[in-house]
Design a binder for these strands. Structure first.
Lengths: 223, 223
DNA sequence: ACAATAGTGTCTGTTAGACAGTATTCA
DNA sequence: TGAATACTGTCTAACAGACACTATTGT
């Protein structure tokens, strides 16, 4: 027997930190079905040009909103018969991260909007296309759990950041405060940061840091 | 423009512990292409009967090899244009776990075979269908990393197990030994195990344990 | 009694977490 | 000089890890 093949899309929620709170950039769906509702940037795989799902994710961001994220990784795949009225469909969800400035610029250019998702989705729009509310919440949850033992959150900061900015990023994503003195010593001991120039701020200038590697993993949770 | 939709399959590597070493159960592919090569149990999504990818994974195991795993979860999705000569294809890989006895019985019934994958795939068959070698290795790696901070490995033991069996499971999957006294106190403190009847063994009978919940997560790695 | 496996108590070095205090900038 | 932010040193309780010891079975 021959079975109808499901529809396959790649959806790419864009995350950043704004005012030390996790935000996601959403657009507005421009065609039926679900026209006019808030949606994650996504699209079909182009079997003639995309070599793999990562290439598809990056092409979709480039073509649809002219954006190159700082970091992207596959999150999870949502696949069921109810998520799209047009039939059984598969969404490969990629998480993309960028600094706030780039995303603020993007949403201004493209008529998109940044939504605070610090409070379990309370500030997401009422109506969202398809199951995109679920996709965003699952992706945020994945980000939270990955943040605990990796340097992934640093990609939502400027390339050079201060220790307190980095701490703020961990706190926002992990949803709990941590002690500045202990945070500093612990992450420095992990040897994942490289020092750069000084950064000016309100008081004493702070040492600037960058990630040595795009992502590093810790043996234990970073509190 | 209208794009050809990729082929979508669900592939389900079956893992267990045999002689305190991680093993995967593989079958033999019975049709072209790649006929005769070792392969992961998998199949197409049946859009008329599967409600979602989990249902598809379980149906495929049931129909193809008449097996119900003890635990299954979505692992990752492999999606590119080179993995199947017939065209751009997507595999949603589900990890399935079972006790050794059930899988030994399964492979005997179905002409499958259990392969030791303790040594990074050195004991996998030379020729495997499609990219199934990669799928198995990636799935095993996912299992290893998840094992560090959860009770997932217990599903590769009998439903009731002794503390030393559980320790052996962690050691096999994590690839490092750990101290019996400390392992015991640490996992008991997590309160994830329930006591059952005594289990007979070579010496003093051991307290039997079962998982309280299908899966529990720890705040820190269990050494 | 002894081999084999299960389970406990205790000690030591390391780490988490709290907190006091010093350093360097701008207004 | 004082407000603001950056950074350091030290103390304590908890935990990781090692290890010696006791307990309960079968032979």
């Amino acid at each position: 027997m021959n079975y109808e093949s499901p529809i396959v899309t790649v959806d790419v929620p864009l995350f950043t930190l704004l005012d030390r709170r996790l935000h996601v950039a959403l657009g507005v769906r421009e065609k039926a079905p679900e026209m006019g509702k808030a949606c994650v940037t996504g699209g079909y795989i182009h079997t003639d040009e995309d070599v793999d799902d990562q290439a598809a994710a990056l092409r979709i961001l480039r073509e649809k909103v002219d954006f190159v994220p700082r970091y992207a990784e596959q999150g999870f795949t949502e696949a069921n018969r109810n998520r799209d009225e047009r039939g059984w469909s598969v969404s490969i969800v990629w998480l993309a991260l960028a600094d706030a400035e780039s995303l603020v610029d993007l949403v201004a250019r493209r008529g998109m909007k940044l939504y605070d998702i610090q409070d379990g989705g309370a500030n997401l729009p009422e109506q969202m296309a398809f199951d995109h509310r679920l996709l965003v919440l699952k992706a945020a949850e994945r980000l939270r759990s990955k943040a605990a033992y990796s340097t992934i959150v640093a990609h939502m900061l400027p390339r050079e950041f201060s220790m307190s900015e980095l701490q703020g990023a961990y706190e926002a994503v992990r949803l709990k405060p941590c002690n500045a003195a202990n945070f500093r010593t612990k992450i420095l001991k992990e040897q994942v940061l490289a020092e750069t120039d000084m950064l000016r701020s309100g008081g004493r200038p702070a040492t600037g840091y960058t990630l040595k590697e795009p992502i590093a993993y810790f043996d234990r949770e970073l509190y």
